[in-house]
Design a protein around this nucleic acid. Sequence first.
DNA 1: TCCGACAACGACAGGGCTGACATGCGAGAT
DNA 2: ATCTCGCATGTCAGCCCTGTCGTTGTCGGA
Lengths: 335, 335
Amino acid sequence: MTRVTISDVARTVGTSKKTISRVLNNDPNVSQSMRQRVVAAVAALNYRPLTSARSLAANRSFMIGLLYDNRSPSYIMEVQAGVQEACEAQHYSMMVQPLVSTAPDFVERVEDILSRHRPDGVILTPPLTDHAQLLECLRKQDVPFASIAPRHPEACIGVMLREREAAAAMVEHLVSLGHRRIAHIIGDLEHGAGIWRLAGYRDGLGRAGLKEDPAYMVQGRFSFESGVAAMRQLLALPQRPTAIFAGDDDMAVGAIWAAAEAGVSIPRDISICGFDDTTMATQVWPPLTTVHQPVREMGRRATQELLLRVLNKGEARMVEVDYQMRIRASTAPAA
Amino acid sequence: MTRVTISDVARTVGTSKKTISRVLNNDPNVSQSMRQRVVAAVAALNYRPLTSARSLAANRSFMIGLLYDNRSPSYIMEVQAGVQEACEAQHYSMMVQPLVSTAPDFVERVEDILSRHRPDGVILTPPLTDHAQLLECLRKQDVPFASIAPRHPEACIGVMLREREAAAAMVEHLVSLGHRRIAHIIGDLEHGAGIWRLAGYRDGLGRAGLKEDPAYMVQGRFSFESGVAAMRQLLALPQRPTAIFAGDDDMAVGAIWAAAEAGVSIPRDISICGFDDTTMATQVWPPLTTVHQPVREMGRRATQELLLRVLNKGEARMVEVDYQMRIRASTAPAA
DNA sequence: TCCGACAACGACAGGGCTGACATGCGAGAT
DNA sequence: ATCTCGCATGTCAGCCCTGTCGTTGTCGGA
């Protein structure tokens, strides 16, 4: 049982390979009747064009690369699902590539992937969205890309969310519950998210007329462990905060864990909230108040914009999606 | 700046394309001196063979497909990382494909992927490992595959773990803490894991001389929500169990959540343990006693076996990896 | 010295598909 | 009737690599 090729189809229809190709690629200038006959034959023979042959001939790979560097698995998994959806809709395939931006051979590896596979476009997730060398590499190789939550959204296409505003809104939520001593576990400042959320925290304090207290601003790294460490530090303070806004859910979950460890009750003694609304947010106890980011949709939208550009089907842009506040049981009125 | 091709390299070295090819593919029968000159030229020109051209000519794709159907994201993500590692080591690339085994066009989609991309091999994760139509499809198209924790490990290559034994050991752990009323939240019985862990639970009870009680065996579906539901059911029992062995961590976390909801203290009132040792296991409070499954390693090992077969480099087999008990704070002596 | 065995290499022919260009043909304009 | 034009289809070269197979070079043994 050998492979069915385009020639086989052409032979059965009694036409040229090119006409088959035209039908399959939705080229204009094919008569209705011919189109139908071809479609019928393709179905009858169960023919599917071989991707590698198409790539070679058409000089494009029909592939989108998803590059990431160890952000939380649940985040990446969601993005991946979204990218996959969008690719599928355009009969593209997705190739995922974990990368370590600090590795010595980083650029080398990127170049390797780009030139061996020649993806028609690439999706960048934080913090790769702002990796200068990477961006240069992409530009040099002329590979279009779309970014998810890049630090400089005005300069590129992709998708973003008003994180600063959302962070401020979260602080306002805490203020509205009567909290005055509100701490922030700062995310990785290499990420836009880290910067914006910190800025939003400050906005929120400012609007409520509260002063910043350096002791209430603890550096984390967007990880569970860093959340635990930060919380321990906050709990050791002579005057504890009554509410904590963690830069992301992973750190918030860490904070909740450290609170449990110390016998501090959430939200009775301290309110905690996060950002992202990951799977864990609803699976910890108490359920976490957080900002919902539609990560999957963001993956999808970014990919759609990218494909718009790749396929020359319209003007690609930086899309903005909406966040949503998810007020759950981890925040409560100040004692 | 146009692409560097094998001809360019051949021209600079002053030899034929085929010789370049031989060097790049580590074929024998090339003299040392020639080999060196070629390598030097390749480096100088920064040449990288185009994957689609190689695929077409060599009639293989240099690609391994990873197929999965919505098991928990953290599980898939770990497998994916392992598969990726193994692929990389052999200069293969990984293509991930989410699938919905209940979808009406399931077979259609599988066939499509297989014939368009012709992966040189495929990694199957549960429950796809036992999907009859899928397996038939793979055999028909002559695509080698390796399975992770398939229900019939003797019939295929891949990787497995003595889950039944581990489950029994977990029950023994509970027994050794003095528990006598031990419940089990049963996983999805479509998965080998569901079956084996249930069997192990029974083994454990039997060895301790305990009788099975249908009321203590609640059906779940390997999901957080099903864990919550099962736990509520168990808590409503006139005589509650003192310990619960959940079929996986997701359900165990759900059980912990439902306990918190009901004001039941873990492990003081009830001990809970799970299976898998996912990320969550150490992030919930109390930290979860569970069986550690080296998921990433399993992905890697399965892929290594697969590549052994694909590349004809040796006899591929069903590898067995070891589990480890992780006794943490969610289990304690019976009251 | 000659032969055979085997190592080292090259010429050639595609693999399956698409892009550029050529051709044929009928409808409408003149 | 003639000329245009535009749509529908075909021809052909070529994308970049590798497999096949035959040629040449090398070396040891008789």
